[in-house]
Design a binder for these strands. Structure first.
Length: 514
RNA sequence: GCCAGAGUAGCUCAGUGGUAGAGCAGAGGACUCAUAAGCCUUUGGUCGGGGGUUCGACUCCCCCCUCUGGCACCA
């Protein structure tokens, strides 16, 4: 059995989760569930990043200990991911002893190997903001913004990681592993970045300025800062499990260069560890072209859609709408278009009419198909093509296209029903019509079963509910479920199920709501 | 400024050398099993602009314009 280790970025807990956090976890979950379906031994890690200046400041502002603060906010993130049906196998927090121990071990190892050295850091420091400033923080006239208060150039002893030393190795590695980063244009972006010489990386902060962190094992007057803390979670979580390297680290495009594409592989190289096999870089959800987050004051909180329309509708929209790696617009109107036309009208209504006709014309027991004429053959053929395209599309992270193909098949099933008109056949006593009626009921039910088998990793609860009302329990081997057959013969179906109720009439035609 | 991504029907996007596509929205129609859903037909585009290569370009090359993001020790 193939092992498959996949991670999300860990979320910084200084704030509440928003759509970007949710999307990344759902996307990772979709990949994880897909690999499990293919039979891989999947290990899915997510978690929270809990140290640093901002957390320390936020806790102080609320008058509580940092640990209490991160306990609360980390739980908030975790609750969201549970709500979203994110099937993580492990949830790591950087304040856990298991993580801190690995960080200290690694730092000690690198220090002993001469990969970390002490030097003086010279820079402009804002006492009010408790941070070093960069030249880009300056106003065009060269002065410092009022926000920073008094700014002075100071010198501070710190520890540095020998990044520059490994630059050539990294370039060589990326050249030889052309598919390290998905999508490919991101890798080109990294190569561009590496054309300029790297500087060594400052990895410490004096405890006098920052207490909330992991102390350096070789100098307890310092804590390590950001990189060796946050990035190492992917490794520390599985240090004793033999799972490293990860197959995929999923990240947003904002943390690719330089952290994940430069620091992270070099850190591992310095430790004598292999880099992850791949980085998968996703884009952002935009609203009016701006990155969506709480701070931009987005008019719609997309997470309320979960409460309004259900987890699966939300997951479906995220995966159906976003081309992995690109940015996408997020609007309530677009959500409603997908919800109404694809989930409610196309799929949900197919479920209901299948159940209703089976109940009305066959006493709720699915008959066997007896006839195979053009309408059946054409639907069978479309199924074969759909299934054969679907799996490679998912393997290539083209989930949005895969779901579109699945919906085309659902539409074709609705068309098939229209061609057979079972409601007319049901009124005929002719033996041929009765055979066609049984065939059409069996065919629509089987098509429905197959369609939702395809989307199982995106909408797992919906697939389970539809199987349940079809009186069907799927087998363990997912691929074996994808063959058109007679699995539903004799199944007793439910009378009705409205899976995706339509919203109030006012929102029936979203285009006019604008 | 440099680098990358994007610019195709009202909207969201697919197409990547051979007579412009889909979904949604709009218009018309037939039906009734169904969540007033589904089905059929249909309106709609000088494929950002300009050059070039080619028998032929949305598709290849060059220049330009617009939008978005990045340009490091912030994550």
């Amino acid at each position: 059995m193939k092992s498959f280790y996949i991670t999300t970025a860990i979320d910084y807990v200084n704030g509440s989760p928003h759509i970007g956090h949710a999307y990344e976890k759902v996307l990772t979950d979709v990949i994880a569930r897909f690999r499990r379906q293919l039979g891989d031994q999947v290990h899915f890690l997510t978690g929270t990043d809990e140290h640093g200046q901002k957390v320390q400041a936020s806790a102080k502002q609320r008058g509580i200990e940092p640990q209490q603060f991160v306990d609360e906010t980390s739980a908030e993130f975790r609750a969201l991911y549970d709500r979203l049906n994110v099937s993580y196998d492990d949830f790591i927090r950087t304040t856990e002893p298991r993580h801190k121990q690995v960080v200290r071990d690694i730092l000690q190892r690198l220090f002993a190997a001469g990969e970390i050295y002490q030097a003086e850091y010279r820079g402009f420091y804002s006492t009010r903001q408790e941070q070093f400033l960069q030249s880009k923080d300056r106003l065009p006239d060269g002065s410092w913004p009022e926000l920073f208060g008094e700014v002075a150039e100071i010198v501070e002893a710190n520890y540095f990681f020998r990044l520059k030393k490994h630059q050539d190795w990294l370039i060589e590695f990326l050249t030889e592993n052309d598919d390290f980063i998905f999508p490919h244009f991101r890798q080109k972006q990294v190569m561009e970045f590496l054309k300029e010489p790297l500087n060594d990386l400052c990895i410490s902060r004096p405890k006098a300025r920052l207490e909330w962190g992991i102390p350096l094992p070789f100098d307890e007057n310092y804590v390590t800062y950001v990189w060796f803390d946050a990035l190492l979670n992917y490794y520390s979580a599985v240090v004793d499990q033999g799972r490293w390297p990860a197959d995929y680290n999923l990240i947003g495009k904002d943390i690719l260069v330089p952290p994940h594409a430069v620091y992270w592989p070099i850190m591992l190289k310095a430790c004598g560890l292999p880099p992850p096999k791949h980085l998968l870089v996703h884009g952002w959800w935009l609203q009016s072209g701006a990155k969506m987050s709480k701070s931009t004051g987005a008019a719609v909180n997309p997470l309320t859609l979960v409460e309004e329309f259900g987890v699966d509708a939300f997951r479906y929209f995220l995966i159906r709408e976003m081309n992995v790696g690109q940015d996408s617009e997020f609007t309530r109107e677009q959500f409603l278009v997908r919800y109404n036309s694809e989930l409610a009208n196309n799929l949900g209504n197919l479920v209901n009419r299948t159940l209703n006709m089976t109940t009305r014309f066959a006493s709720g027991v699915l008959p066997a198909a007896e006839v195979s004429e053009d309408p059946e053959r054409e639907l069978h053929d479309l199924w074969t093509r759909t299934r054969d395209e679907f799996i490679p599309l998912c393997e290539g992270f083209q989930f949005h296209t895969a779901l579109e193909r699945m919906m085309v098949f659902v539409t074709a099933t609705n068309t098939y029903i229209q061609r057979r008109e079972p409601w007319k056949l049901g009124k005929s006593a002719e033996a041929k019509d009765q055979a066609l009626l049984r065939t059409s009921l069996a065919t629509m039910a089987e098509a429905l079963r197959l369609a939702v088998a395809l989307s199982q990793h995106v909408t797992p609860a919906t697939t389970a509910r539809i199987n349940a009302v079809l009186g069907y329990t799927p087998g363990a081997d997912w691929r074996a479920e994808l063959t058109w057959g007679a699995k539903l013969n004799g199944a007793k179906v439910a009378e009705a199920l409205v899976l995706f109720p339509r919203p109030a009439p006012a929102e029936k035609t979203p285009a006019k709501v604008l």
